[in-house]
């Protein structure tokens, strides 16, 4: 059982949690995630560790309410307990000095992007960030991102914040203006697919962090498998970050819909 120390609502559907987990706080690296479970019949869901505080022994998670399990989490408040929490899981991001990094975040993907932006900046890179979402209230962590980026461009589908347009348009604006050495893109699978197509055009090495369906997160079940460069990989232990230009995104999109019927039914029931 892990105690929730603080909770904020970042928007109607997005909440931020600071959770007591001293061991994980100490051993986690940017790119790692946890798996948690609410209640004895709860589902195990993966969430990226956005930040940690070793002294206070806490980790920060940001979650978007999209279904039953994320909804259950969002209903909890400071002082409540998480039934089970395990981590840090997944391989850490390879942080190094590359020159100029283009960081693309879509929707709640901005949350997992944040620790990576911060780490790249701390490693001495120039960081150009594009934050994109459907509308203003889905843009999260803008202030924090500005603190750790050299430049931030906000794009919304409806123009309610920043510029009106897609994340890829923002990306190309930077790419055309100056030399970009590496790119990292995190968001919905469909967004990452188009980011990958864009950077491929310019031959920019690109990492994406995949949000496959998972069960155990330790390599035991294979629910998280993806095809990378023609080979089957397990996102939880081989990833979650992979070379964007080698991923079979169409298969990924298909696999994300595997439990669509069951999920819809569950959501309507509750």
């Amino acid at each position: 059982m892990n105690k929730i120390i603080e909770k904020y609502n970042l928007s109607e559907h997005v909440a931020k949690f600071v959770i007591e987990a001293p061991m994980i706080a100490k051993s986690r690296k940017p790119g790692n995630f946890v798996i948690l479970r609410i209640g004895e019949k709860g589902e195990r869901i993966p969430l990226t560790i956005v930040d940690s505080d070793i002294e206070k022994g806490t980790i920060t998670l940001i979650v978007q309410n999209v279904g039953v399990s994320s909804g259950k989490l969002c209903q909890l408040a400071a002082g409540d307990f998480i039934t089970d929490l395990v981590g840090p899981l997944g391989k850490a991001t390879h942080i190094h000095k590359a020159g100029t990094i283009l960081a693309l975040g879509g929707g709640v993907g901005i949350a997992p992007l944040f620790p990576i932006v911060k780490a790249f900046k701390q490693a001495g890179n120039r960081v150009l960030t594009v934050l994109a979402a459907r509308s203003k209230d889905l843009i999260i962590l803008e202030k924090e991102m500005r603190e750790w980026s050299d430049e931030v461009l906000v794009m919304t589908d409806d123009g309610s914040s920043g510029r009106k347009g897609l994340v890829t348009e923002g990306a190309e604006e930077f790419i055309k203006r100056e030399k970009v050495d590496e790119c990292v893109a995190i968001g919905p699978a469909i967004m990452m697919k188009f980011c990958a197509l864009t950077t491929k055009k310019y031959d920019i090495p690109t990492q994406v962090s995949l949000n496959t369906i998972m069960v155990d997160g330790t390599g035991m079940c294979g629910a998280c498998r993806v095809t990378v460069n023609g080979e089957t990989k397990f996102t939880c232990i081989d990833g979650p970050e992979f070379n964007a230009h080698q991923i079979d995104f169409d298969e990924l999109l298909q696999r994300l819909r595997a439990y669509k019927n069951e999920e819809d039914q569950a959501k309507n029931k509750k």
Binding site: V215, M220, C221, G222, T232
Partner: peptide, 18 residues
């Protein structure tokens, strides 16, 4: 990797553990 093809571990874990 089609939907509906899974490992026995996934199937049994979903049922027996979850």
């Amino acid at each position: 990797n089609l939907n509906g093809v899974m490992s026995s571990n996934e199937y049994l874990t979903r049922v027996n553990l979850m």
